[in-house]
């Protein structure tokens, strides 16, 4: 049996998860929530993580009912993400690995999402849509790499949603995206927004500027409601994501789609993707918020695969990196 503890803190969530051969033994998490209208800044987020990380580690061990001696490997997020929060979490992972005398393993955050999605849904070889506050990529596996078929050329889809939420002061609790999703259900009027698919890639920054201006103009004079804007934004963004996912599937001859990342728990996105999959006779795999949203178990799971295939990270090489593309990682555990 191989037991891996995973540390994740590349954005505003701090999570510690323990995996034993495909079984999630524990996966506690805390979220740094900012007031409406405000995003999370690296320094403040790191401070939040520092203040709770040891409590979360203790919870993870207690819930799993294991002792440090039972752990085989300590995995942590090497990148990509915000520098200050990444360093904070890496420092604790390094210290514990040394205290406990266990090997350390630096994990690519995106690979963590993909491997956790594969574990939970049992999807074999899916086309992956990875959508979160920091990343938007369509990915398929080939020749020992998760290859990026399409991606955003500017901001991530979740960043577009988060920043729109700030403009009209939607609460960040539990997350701006969740609140937009709830408000969108009450939207009745579709407001046409720019639709910016560029080949296999997508662009969201222009849509954000457009809807910001529309919000100021239309809400002031009562031409539409905030709910209408939430609805229209979701429909437009998600249609773009479904389009590039479908194109990647056609290209790869794939009959499986896996949605991962924080935006992936949006049920409207899952519904729209489901319609496309049904038309193509393909299967859709998605997970709920406990595994879609950043968590420690996903880092433990990718770490488990890496460790079992013989990888470890020496302490001097355990530096974090804010930029770390999904396709930089050699996938040593798949054929």
């Amino acid at each position: 049996m191989t037991v891996v503890i995973g540390f994740e803190g590349s954005a505003n969530k701090i999570g510690v998860g323990i995996i034993r051969d495909g079984e999630v033994m524990s996966n506690p998490r805390r979220t740094y929530i900012t007031p409406p209208g405000q995003g999370f800044l690296p320094g403040e987020t790191a401070k939040h993580h520092r203040s709770v990380i040891l409590t979360v580690v203790r919870e993870a061990l207690d819930e799993a009912g294991i002792k440090p001696a039972d752990i085989d490997c300590v995995a942590y997020t090497k990148g990509p993400g915000m520098g200050a929060p990444l360093v904070t979490v890496a420092i604790v992972a390094r210290t514990l690995a040394q205290l406990w005398g266990k090997p350390l393993l630096g994990v690519n955050h995106c690979i963590g999402h993909i491997e956790m999605g594969r574990l939970i849904t049992r999807a074999q070889n899916p086309t992956v849509l990875y959508v979160s506050g920091g990343n938007t990529q369509v990915i398929a596996y080939s020749e020992r790499r998760y290859r990026i078929f399409g991606e955003t050329i500017d901001i991530a889809v979740g960043n577009c949603l988060d920043r729109f939420a700030r403009v009209i002061k939607i609460s960040n609790d539990p997350s701006p995206g969740y609140n937009i999703e709830q408000m969108a259900k009450k939207g009745t009027q579709y407001i046409e927004l720019p639709y910016t698919v560029k080949g296999m890639d997508v662009s969201f920054s222009g849509i954000l500027s457009y809807i910001e201006e529309a919000a100021h103009k239309m809400l002031g004079v009562g031409q539409c409601t905030p709910e209408d804007l939430c609805f229209s934004l979701q429909e437009t963004l998600f249609a773009m994501l479904v389009e590039i996912t479908e194109r990647a599937m056609a290209h790869c001859g794939s009959q499986e789609v896996l949605i991962v990342g924080g935006v992936g728990c949006n049920l409207r996105l899952q519904e729209m993707m489901g319609v496309m999959c049904k038309e193509r006779g393909a299967r859709l795999f998605a997970t709920d918020e406990s595994f879609c949203i950043d968590n420690g178990a996903m880092i433990a799971q990718a770490g488990w695969e890496m460790f079992r295939s013989g990888q470890v990270t020496d302490l001097p090489d355990s530096w974090i990196t804010q930029r770390y593309r999904t396709d930089e990682v050699e996938i040593t555990w798949r054929n």
């Binding site: 520092r50 990380i53 040891l54 580690v57 203790r58 420092i91 205290l99 406990w100």
Partner: peptide, 18 residues
């Protein structure tokens, strides 16, 4: 100094090294 105190807290919380 922030990082140093985090290391010290971690050492305190998770006991003496093996």
């Amino acid at each position: 100094l922030d990082h140093l105190s985090l290391v010290m807290e971690t050492l305190d919380a998770f006991g003496s090294p093996v």
